[in-house]
């Protein structure tokens, strides 16, 4: 039994690791995702949230008299690049590995 429990725990924990999203999504000015190339296994609610929050960053910058054309958010192992798209936004999601040259 001990061995079976060990195997169960091993597989349960492997499933719990959330893979980083990879691909792109376009969001219109109302925050609706128009196109998306991120794996369908990735939670849709999280993609919606990413789209809305990034869109808000552009809108708030416009309100502060600083209309932006591009925003890059650099994380320890991930890069999010967003470009303004006629009021909407296109977002690129790129996991960063040790092989990846860090862009700015």
């Amino acid at each position: 039994m001990g061995f079976i429990d060990y195997i169960k725990r091993l597989f349960r924990s492997r499933a719990a690791v959330q893979k980083l999203p990879q691909g792109s999504l376009t969001v219109d000015r109302d925050g609706v995702i128009i196109t998306c190339t991120v794996s369908s296994a990735y939670p849709k609610t999280l993609l919606d949230e990413i789209g809305n929050e990034v869109l808000a960053v552009f809108q708030e910058a416009r309100d502060a008299q600083l209309p932006l054309t591009e925003v890059n958010i650099h994380y320890g192992s991930f890069l999010l690049t967003a470009r303004e798209l006629r009021g909407g936004v296109i977002i690129f999601l790129l996991p960063q590995s040790a092989r990846t040259q860090l862009p700015t």
């Binding site: 959330q18 980083l20 999203p21 999280l46 949230e49 990413i50 929050e53 808000a56 960053v57 910058a61 600083l66 209309p67 932006l68 054309t69 591009e70 925003v71 890059n72 958010i73 650099h74 994380y75 320890g76 192992s77 991930f78 999010l80 700015t104």
Partner: peptide
């Protein structure tokens, strides 16, 4: 703050920095 929270939800590691471009 938004970037930090998104990073936590995506499990993307700590926020290092942001860059942006205007006209």
């Amino acid at each position: 703050e938004v970037a930090r929270q998104l990073g936590e939800k995506m499990e993307a590691g700590p926020l290092l920095h942001l860059t942006a471009r205007s006209q």
